[in-house]
């Protein structure tokens, strides 16, 4: 069974850490189809996290088609990750071009990482705001 690691100083929400670790375990084959995830209670007790956080992570994984709850027996891995629909090679090519420009502008690797993290956080914030605006409109 997968054993989670919770990093309280990472700045990443606990629920996002759980989702990421299940995804990675499935991707690397550490978790296979039919494997059971620990129950919310087991994770809560072992790591001292709110069980609702665990349930929220499992719901997200279920919505992504990665796991399925089975009545009264737990949450199980459904199958290997559906192959990403995104155009990964294309994104990679764009990024390589961007890295070239950033280097030419005098940025080093940590600078680029910082910039990427900042842009990702900003995009997430805007997505949140849009969601908020939609909710307000309702």
């Amino acid at each position: 069974m997968i054993s989670f690691r919770i990093d309280r100083r990472s700045g990443t929400a606990v629920y996002a850490q759980l989702v990421l670790q299940v995804r990675q375990a499935v991707r690397t084959g550490r978790l296979g189809a039919g494997d059971r995830l620990p129950t919310a209670r087991e994770v809560a007790e072992r790591h001292g996290v709110n069980p609702n956080t665990v349930l929220r992570a499992y719901r997200d994984l279920e919505a992504a088609g990665l796991v399925e709850p089975r009545q009264g027996s737990g949450t199980y891995v459904r199958a290997a990750l559906p192959s990403p629909p995104a155009d990964v090679p294309g994104l990679r090519k764009d990024l390589a071009a961007w890295v070239g420009r950033a280097r030419a502008a005098g940025l080093d690797d940590p600078d680029m990482h910082a910039l990427l993290a900042e842009a990702a956080a900003e995009a997430a914030d805007h997505a949140q705001d849009r969601k908020g605006a939609v909710n307000d409109a309702r």
Binding site: A40, R41, A44, E45, H47, G48
Partner: peptide, 14 residues
């Protein structure tokens, strides 16, 4: 600390 929080969260789950 970890044990007490774990026991507490187990109770919440149960």
């Amino acid at each position: 600390r970890a044990e007490v929080t774990g026991a507490l969260m187990g109770e919440v789950a149960e």
